[in-house]
Design a binder for these strands. Structure first.
Length: 576
RNA sequence: GCAGCCGUAGCUCAGCUGGAUAGAGCGCUGCCCUCCGAAGGCAGAGGUCGUAGGUUCGAAUCCUACCGGUUGCGCCA
């Protein structure tokens, strides 16, 4: 249960009994920043003071009086300008702990999403080469966001949009053709300017040689291009999927841009917009400030993006008559909408920032306001080693590959670190620091907490064979009376709220910070046991207390595993 | 020129969508310690939340302008 949601409802009930019919939408129930202010604080009296026609403190006193009768509330005080602070009974916290233990890693699951369909599109890298480090962040972010939304009760589809219709695919096909000739024994020399030089195309060339023999070698381009396009795209996509698998990232659906074009969906969506009078032939104003050298006014097919909040209208057709990217993107998002996704999330690189408004405008237009598109832009990752900018081997071209990165530090480290910043902030990724065993390496710190818990559990099993058997009941858990223990329980009980707020904000990084806090609280309790032996988890001559503390540890394990599960990071039981 | 994002402690960043005395890690200073499992622990100093206005009971958070950084800016992908 999200206890803050629960108490918000309880508070509103109390208000209703005092002054019925108020608009309570602005009432909040939150953990106070200051722990001395109790467990739950509400602003109810302050936001309702006008509508209720009472002074904030007077209204607060009345609400407080009503809340004092609640069995889970041990103390109520009115403070400051009219805050109502609740302190909850220990028994309430023990119930929460029991709830964690009963749920295990499922703890934190929420029905907030009510099973609504959400489409999360991420990676969508062009199928023209291997994944590089620039793709990694978006991949991990999208994957974790999708998992987070699943946890929060949404029906999530993970999607990859394959840009296989643009001219870059022709370039790819020609590059593959060159490698094909190479595989047949021809000397190809330098890769000509304008083709992809990367060696990753060699296997594709060899596969082509195997499949066709010399049959294509002397044919004109028009005869082999379509076939090689498909072949090369498939080969690249296989490679990308492989790279992603190495990072533990997966997708449910791959949508082909060419497929949309061939099925006439681009034409359909533009017909639809034309029917609404949102497309016209016109001439755009030149951009202000520095003009591109070759700028000249020319009539274009334009979408009235300005009617939906964009800065200028946007072109749909190139001068050669083919669709712009934007045109097929409109078709693609209409397609998503028609597949039932009223809620769409696109994860893009920050360099596409200028594209957001027009895409949101298009979604509004095409869904008649029924669809919602949130675009999450992932900022650059600065790769460092020992604090200095770092370049890895360039065996695949001019970039650091994702594969190299995963090989260097492991998938779990890559995933966790990528999620320790909010998506629109720059991220430093230091190859040395992420492997450090210290408190300022969050991956280690969180993993270590989990492993330490397991260590104690293994130790306990040696003392009492049944120690880690059935979960202890509330009467046993009630032996946990130290403030540090109760503090840890409070933190655990806050997990459902964290999941919901992170999911609502589409911000998985909040989970990383929560896990770090939880790990810190656990390690803190551990350290207290160093000085005060009575606080150690296992007390040989007090089996019941030990069982209660083991229960607490198992709850910590459950919540950490639950959070790492969202991140796709394995919770380890031993550090190596 | 326009648009997006960022600006919080010496450094790297949180700050729960408007709440109470703004937090963490690192670094710094001073004490203590060698552990069920390996990151040592405790305490302390350190902030006009970029600047200036505005909204209101209340602003780091919302609005406006400006400053600094960054990304992008008609057919590229």
């Amino acid at each position: 249960m999200n206890l803050f949601k629960y108490f918000r409802e309880e508070i509103i009930k109390s208000v209703e009994a005092i002054v019925p019919g108020l608009d309570t939408s602005k009432v909040t129930a939150e953990p106070p920043r200051e722990t001395s202010h109790g467990d739950v604080a509400t602003n109810a009296a302050m936001v309702l003071t006008k509508a209720a026609g009472m002074k904030p403190r007077d209204l607060a006193e009345k609400i407080a009086a009503a809340l004092r009768t609640h069995p889970a509330v041990s103390e109520v005080e009115v403070a400051g300008p009219g805050f109502i602070n609740l302190r909850l009974a220990d028994s309430f916290w023990f119930e929460r702990l029991a709830e964690v233990l009963a749920a295990g890693t499922a703890y934190g699951e929420s029905d907030m999403g009510k099973g609504c369909k959400v489409n999360v599109e991420y990676v969508s890298a062009n199928p023209t080469g291997p994944m590089h480090i620039g793709h990694a962040r978006g991949a991990v972010f999208g994957d974790a966001l999708a998992s987070l939304l699943v946890k929060a009760g949404y029906d999530v589809t993970r999607e990859y949009y394959v840009n296989d219709a643009g001219s870059q695919v022709d370039v790819l096909a020609r590059s593959a053709f060159l490698r094909y000739r190479e595989a047949l024994g021809e000397e190809i020399g330098e890769i000509p300017e304008g083709l992809y030089p990367g060696e990753y195309l060699k296997p594709a060339g060899e596969a082509l040689a195997k499949k066709y023999g010399p049959a294509l070698k002397d044919k004109p381009e028009a005869e082999w291009l379509p076939e090689l396009r498909t072949f090369a795209v498939d080969a690249m996509l296989d490679m990308i999927k492989d790279d992603l698998a190495g990072l533990g990232v997966r997708h449910d659906v791959f949508v082909s841009e060419r497929g949309l074009v061939d099925a006439g969906k681009v034409q359909d969506s533009l017909d639809y917009l034309t029917g609404k009078g949102l497309i016209y032939e016109g001439v755009l104003e030149p951009p202000k400030g520095k003009l591109p050298d070759d700028w000249e006014a020319r009539p274009q097919t334009l979408f009235k993006a300005t009617e939906f909040g964009d800065d200028v209208d946007r072109p749909l057709r190139k001068s050669d008559g083919s669709w712009t990217y934007f045109a097929s993107d409109i078709a693609y998002h209409l397609d998503k909408y028609r597949r039932g996704f009223g809620s769409m999330i696109d994860v893009w690189g920050a360099d596409h920032g200028g594209y957001v408004k027009r895409m949101q405008a298009a979604v509004k237009a095409v869904s008649e306001g029924g669809g919602d598109l949130d675009v999450k832009l992932c900022q650059m990752v600065n790769l460092l080693k020992g604090g200095q900018p770092y370049k890895m081997s360039k065996r695949a071209g001019t970039f650091v590959t994702l594969r190299d990165l995963v090989e260097a530090v492991g998938k779990d480290v890559v995933r966790f670190i990528m999620l320790t910043r909010k998506n629109d902030a720059h991220l430093d990724f230091d190859l040395d620091k992420v492997l450090e065993q210290s408190r300022d390496n969050p991956v280690f710190y969180v993993q270590y907490a989990h492993a330490r818990c397991h260590s104690v559990m293994r130790h306990a099993a040696g003392m009492w064979p049944d120690a880690v058997g059935p979960v202890p009941g509330i009467d046993v858990l009630a032996r946990l009376t130290d403030p540090a223990e109760l503090g840890l329980i409070r933190l655990l009980a806050g997990w459902p709220r964290q999941v919901e707020s992170a999911a609502e904000a589409h911000e998985p990084h909040r989970v990383a910070f929560y896990l770090y806090d939880l790990a810190a609280a656990f390690h803190g309790l551990w350290n207290k046991g160093k000085d005060e032996t009575r606080l150690r988890f296992l007390i040989e001559d007090d089996r019941e207390l030990s069982l209660a503390r083991l229960g607490l540890l198992r709850a910590v394990v459950g919540v950490i595993a639950s959070g790492l599960g969202i991140f796709g990071v394995a919770p380890v039981e031993e550090m190596r």
